[in-house]
Protein backbone atom coordinates (compact mmCIF):
# COMPACT_ATOMS: atom_id res chain seq x y z
CA UNK A 1 0.00 0.00 0.00
CA UNK A 2 3.00 2.26 -0.06
CA UNK A 3 2.29 3.37 -3.56
CA UNK A 4 -1.25 4.38 -2.65
CA UNK A 5 0.05 6.54 0.16
CA UNK A 6 2.75 8.00 -2.03
CA UNK A 7 0.23 8.67 -4.75
CA UNK A 8 -1.84 10.64 -2.29
CA UNK A 9 1.05 12.99 -1.63
CA UNK A 10 0.53 15.63 -4.30
CA UNK A 11 -3.01 16.86 -3.98
CA UNK A 12 -3.12 18.22 -7.50
CA UNK A 13 -1.81 16.89 -10.80
CA UNK A 14 1.73 17.98 -11.39
CA UNK A 15 2.93 20.02 -14.31
CA UNK A 16 4.37 16.96 -16.01
CA UNK A 17 2.43 13.95 -17.15
CA UNK A 18 -1.03 14.08 -18.64
CA UNK A 19 -3.05 16.87 -17.07
CA UNK A 20 -6.32 15.97 -18.77
CA UNK A 21 -6.20 12.34 -17.75
CA UNK A 22 -4.95 13.20 -14.29
CA UNK A 23 -7.68 15.73 -13.66
CA UNK A 24 -10.30 13.13 -14.42
CA UNK A 25 -9.07 10.88 -11.61
CA UNK A 26 -9.57 11.46 -7.93
CA UNK A 27 -7.09 10.48 -5.30
CA UNK A 28 -7.76 7.44 -3.15
CA UNK A 29 -10.84 6.75 -5.22
CA UNK A 30 -9.72 3.91 -7.42
CA UNK A 31 -11.68 3.01 -10.47
CA UNK A 32 -13.08 -0.42 -11.09
CA UNK A 33 -10.22 -1.32 -13.40
CA UNK A 34 -7.72 -0.39 -10.71
CA UNK A 35 -9.49 -2.50 -8.11
CA UNK A 36 -9.57 -5.46 -10.48
CA UNK A 37 -5.90 -4.92 -11.33
CA UNK A 38 -5.01 -4.78 -7.65
CA UNK A 39 -6.89 -7.97 -6.79
CA UNK A 40 -5.50 -9.95 -9.73
CA UNK A 41 -2.08 -8.51 -8.99
CA UNK A 42 -2.24 -9.72 -5.38
CA UNK A 43 -3.22 -13.17 -6.65
CA UNK A 44 -0.37 -13.14 -9.15
CA UNK A 45 2.18 -12.01 -6.60
CA UNK A 46 1.00 -14.59 -4.08
CA UNK A 47 1.22 -17.35 -6.66
CA UNK A 48 4.71 -16.21 -7.61
CA UNK A 49 5.75 -16.26 -3.95
CA UNK A 50 4.41 -19.79 -3.52
CA UNK A 51 6.23 -20.79 -6.71
CA UNK A 52 9.59 -19.74 -5.36
CA UNK A 53 9.05 -20.97 -1.80
CA UNK A 54 7.17 -24.26 -1.99
CA UNK A 55 9.07 -27.46 -1.37
CA UNK A 56 7.00 -29.57 -3.75
CA UNK A 57 8.46 -29.23 -7.20
CA UNK A 58 5.35 -30.11 -9.19
CA UNK A 59 3.29 -27.70 -7.10
CA UNK A 60 5.78 -24.97 -8.00
CA UNK A 61 5.09 -25.56 -11.69
CA UNK A 62 1.33 -25.53 -11.08
CA UNK A 63 1.48 -22.29 -9.10
CA UNK A 64 3.53 -20.85 -11.94
CA UNK A 65 0.47 -21.49 -14.12
CA UNK A 66 -1.59 -19.33 -11.76
CA UNK A 67 0.99 -16.55 -11.81
CA UNK A 68 1.28 -16.53 -15.60
CA UNK A 69 -2.49 -16.71 -16.04
CA UNK A 70 -2.89 -13.79 -13.67
CA UNK A 71 -0.43 -11.84 -15.77
CA UNK A 72 -2.53 -12.62 -18.84
CA UNK A 73 -5.54 -11.12 -17.05
CA UNK A 74 -3.45 -8.05 -16.25
CA UNK A 75 -2.63 -7.68 -19.93
CA UNK A 76 -6.34 -7.87 -20.71
CA UNK A 77 -7.02 -5.15 -18.14
CA UNK A 78 -4.35 -3.03 -19.82
CA UNK A 79 -6.23 -3.54 -23.14
CA UNK A 80 -3.38 -5.52 -24.65
CA UNK A 81 -5.53 -8.36 -25.92
CA UNK A 82 -3.14 -9.94 -28.37
CA UNK A 83 -0.31 -10.13 -25.83
CA UNK A 84 -2.72 -11.66 -23.34
CA UNK A 85 -3.70 -14.51 -25.64
CA UNK A 86 -0.12 -15.04 -26.74
CA UNK A 87 0.77 -15.27 -23.06
CA UNK A 88 -1.93 -17.88 -22.48
CA UNK A 89 -0.91 -19.88 -25.53
CA UNK A 90 2.86 -19.84 -25.11
CA UNK A 91 3.48 -19.59 -21.38
CA UNK A 92 0.54 -21.43 -19.87
CA UNK A 93 0.22 -23.76 -22.83
CA UNK A 94 3.73 -24.74 -23.70
CA UNK A 95 6.38 -23.42 -21.33
CA UNK A 96 4.78 -24.86 -18.20
CA UNK A 97 4.17 -28.17 -19.94
CA UNK A 98 7.83 -28.17 -20.95
CA UNK A 99 8.84 -27.48 -17.36
CA UNK A 100 6.64 -30.32 -16.13
CA UNK A 101 8.24 -32.64 -18.68
CA UNK A 102 11.64 -31.53 -17.42
CA UNK A 103 10.64 -32.19 -13.81
CA UNK A 104 9.43 -35.66 -14.66
CA UNK A 105 12.42 -36.54 -16.86
CA UNK A 106 14.81 -35.58 -14.08
CA UNK A 107 12.79 -37.80 -11.71
CA UNK A 108 11.81 -35.02 -9.36
CA UNK A 109 10.33 -36.30 -6.13
CA UNK A 110 6.57 -36.11 -5.99
CA UNK A 111 6.26 -35.27 -2.32
CA UNK A 112 8.11 -32.66 -0.31
CA UNK A 113 11.79 -32.50 -1.10
CA UNK A 114 13.79 -31.15 1.84
CA UNK A 115 16.63 -29.79 -0.27
CA UNK A 116 14.67 -27.55 -2.63
CA UNK A 117 16.26 -24.44 -1.15
CA UNK A 118 19.98 -23.99 -0.93
CA UNK A 119 21.88 -22.73 2.07
CA UNK A 120 22.06 -19.11 1.00
CA UNK A 121 18.35 -18.52 1.53
CA UNK A 122 18.71 -15.59 3.86
CA UNK A 123 21.26 -13.85 1.65
CA UNK A 124 18.88 -14.29 -1.26
CA UNK A 125 16.00 -12.94 0.81
CA UNK A 126 18.06 -9.91 1.80
CA UNK A 127 19.06 -9.17 -1.78
CA UNK A 128 15.51 -9.59 -3.06
CA UNK A 129 14.00 -7.40 -0.31
CA UNK A 130 16.57 -4.68 -0.86
CA UNK A 131 16.01 -4.76 -4.61
CA UNK A 132 12.23 -4.65 -4.12
CA UNK A 133 12.44 -1.70 -1.74
CA UNK A 134 14.74 0.27 -4.03
CA UNK A 135 12.75 -0.48 -7.19
CA UNK A 136 9.37 0.32 -5.64
CA UNK A 137 10.64 3.54 -4.09
CA UNK A 138 12.14 4.73 -7.37
CA UNK A 139 9.17 3.69 -9.50
CA UNK A 140 6.54 5.23 -7.22
CA UNK A 141 8.53 8.41 -6.84
CA UNK A 142 8.99 8.71 -10.59
CA UNK A 143 5.46 7.94 -11.77
CA UNK A 144 3.18 9.18 -9.02
CA UNK A 145 1.54 11.74 -11.27
CA UNK A 146 1.22 9.52 -14.31
CA UNK A 147 -2.02 7.95 -15.36
CA UNK A 148 -2.83 5.49 -18.08
CA UNK A 149 -5.88 6.42 -20.09
CA UNK A 150 -7.66 3.18 -20.80
CA UNK A 151 -10.67 4.65 -22.61
CA UNK A 152 -11.15 4.54 -26.33
CA UNK A 153 -10.10 1.76 -28.67
CA UNK A 154 -7.85 -0.96 -27.34
CA UNK A 155 -4.17 -0.14 -27.50
CA UNK A 156 -3.14 -3.70 -28.15
CA UNK A 157 -5.81 -5.28 -30.30
CA UNK A 158 -4.74 -7.78 -32.90
CA UNK A 159 -5.19 -5.29 -35.73
CA UNK A 160 -3.05 -2.59 -34.13
CA UNK A 161 -0.37 -5.02 -33.03
CA UNK A 162 -0.22 -6.74 -36.39
CA UNK A 163 -0.05 -3.48 -38.29
CA UNK A 164 2.79 -2.11 -36.19
CA UNK A 165 4.59 -5.45 -36.16
CA UNK A 166 4.55 -5.87 -39.92
CA UNK A 167 5.08 -2.21 -40.79
CA UNK A 168 7.88 -1.24 -38.47
CA UNK A 169 9.25 -4.44 -36.99
CA UNK A 170 9.54 -6.80 -39.96
CA UNK A 171 13.30 -7.20 -39.84
CA UNK A 172 13.49 -8.16 -36.13
CA UNK A 173 10.55 -10.47 -36.72
CA UNK A 174 12.44 -12.32 -39.45
CA UNK A 175 15.60 -12.38 -37.38
CA UNK A 176 13.56 -13.94 -34.60
CA UNK A 177 12.56 -16.80 -36.88
CA UNK A 178 16.25 -17.50 -37.48
CA UNK A 179 16.78 -17.47 -33.71
CA UNK A 180 13.98 -19.98 -33.19
CA UNK A 181 15.52 -22.21 -35.87
CA UNK A 182 18.89 -21.96 -34.13
CA UNK A 183 17.26 -22.86 -30.81
CA UNK A 184 15.58 -25.87 -32.43
CA UNK A 185 18.84 -27.11 -33.93
CA UNK A 186 20.63 -26.47 -30.65
CA UNK A 187 18.13 -28.50 -28.64
CA UNK A 188 18.42 -31.38 -31.13
CA UNK A 189 22.22 -31.31 -30.98
CA UNK A 190 22.22 -31.26 -27.18
CA UNK A 191 19.90 -34.23 -26.87
CA UNK A 192 21.77 -36.20 -29.55
CA UNK A 193 25.06 -35.76 -27.75
CA UNK A 194 23.53 -36.96 -24.51
CA UNK A 195 22.06 -40.02 -26.20
CA UNK A 196 25.35 -40.96 -27.85
CA UNK A 197 27.11 -40.66 -24.53
CA UNK A 198 24.47 -42.74 -22.82
CA UNK A 199 24.96 -45.52 -25.37
CA UNK A 200 28.60 -45.99 -24.38
CA UNK A 201 28.26 -47.93 -21.13
CA UNK A 202 31.91 -49.03 -20.60
CA UNK A 203 33.03 -45.54 -19.56
CA UNK A 204 30.28 -45.12 -17.01
CA UNK A 205 30.49 -48.63 -15.61
CA UNK A 206 34.25 -48.41 -15.20
CA UNK A 207 33.88 -45.07 -13.48
CA UNK A 208 31.37 -46.40 -11.04
CA UNK A 209 33.35 -49.59 -10.45
CA UNK A 210 36.45 -47.53 -9.80
CA UNK A 211 35.11 -46.34 -6.49
CA UNK A 212 36.71 -42.90 -6.29
CA UNK A 213 37.74 -41.74 -9.73
CA UNK A 214 40.14 -38.83 -10.02
CA UNK A 215 38.38 -35.85 -11.50
CA UNK A 216 40.80 -35.01 -14.37
CA UNK A 217 40.85 -38.61 -15.46
CA UNK A 218 37.11 -38.82 -15.67
CA UNK A 219 37.15 -35.54 -17.59
CA UNK A 220 39.40 -37.17 -20.16
CA UNK A 221 36.99 -40.04 -20.37
CA UNK A 222 34.02 -37.81 -20.92
CA UNK A 223 35.82 -35.80 -23.61
CA UNK A 224 36.77 -39.08 -25.23
CA UNK A 225 33.14 -40.00 -25.16
CA UNK A 226 32.31 -36.72 -26.85
CA UNK A 227 34.75 -37.06 -29.70
CA UNK A 228 32.95 -39.54 -31.99
CA UNK A 229 29.74 -37.56 -31.61
CA UNK A 230 31.41 -34.35 -32.68
CA UNK A 231 32.95 -36.03 -35.68
CA UNK A 232 29.61 -37.46 -36.55
CA UNK A 233 28.04 -34.06 -36.25
CA UNK A 234 30.72 -32.49 -38.47
CA UNK A 235 30.08 -34.93 -41.23
Amino acid sequence: MTFALAAAGPAHPGPSGVPLAAAAHGFLSPTGVEIAFLLVGLLTFGAALVTVTTRQLVHAALWLVVALGGLAVEYLLLTAEFIAWVQVLIYVGSVVVLLLFGLMLTRAPIGRSPDADSGNRWAALTVAAAAAAALIWVVVDAFRTTWIDLDGPAAGSTEVTGASLFQHWVLPFEALSVLLLAALVGAIVLSRKARAEKSSPPVNSRDSADGSPVVPESRNHSSGGHRPTEQEGAR
Partner: peptide
Amino acid sequence: MHLAYPAVLSALLFCTGVYGVL
Protein backbone atom coordinates in the same frame (compact mmCIF):
# COMPACT_ATOMS: atom_id res chain seq x y z
CA MET B 1 -5.32 3.64 -14.19
CA HIS B 2 -2.40 4.83 -12.17
CA LEU B 3 0.87 3.80 -13.80
CA ALA B 4 2.28 2.83 -10.41
CA TYR B 5 0.06 -0.25 -10.17
CA PRO B 6 1.63 -2.22 -13.04
CA ALA B 7 5.09 -0.81 -12.32
CA VAL B 8 5.00 -1.87 -8.67
CA LEU B 9 3.55 -5.28 -9.53
CA SER B 10 6.30 -5.88 -12.06
CA ALA B 11 8.96 -4.78 -9.56
CA LEU B 12 7.56 -7.22 -7.00
CA LEU B 13 7.46 -10.07 -9.52
CA PHE B 14 11.01 -9.33 -10.62
CA CYS B 15 12.29 -9.43 -7.06
CA THR B 16 10.41 -12.68 -6.47
CA GLY B 17 12.25 -14.09 -9.45
CA VAL B 18 15.55 -12.79 -8.09
CA TYR B 19 14.89 -14.55 -4.81
CA GLY B 20 14.02 -17.77 -6.62
CA VAL B 21 17.14 -17.69 -8.76
CA LEU B 22 19.36 -17.08 -5.76
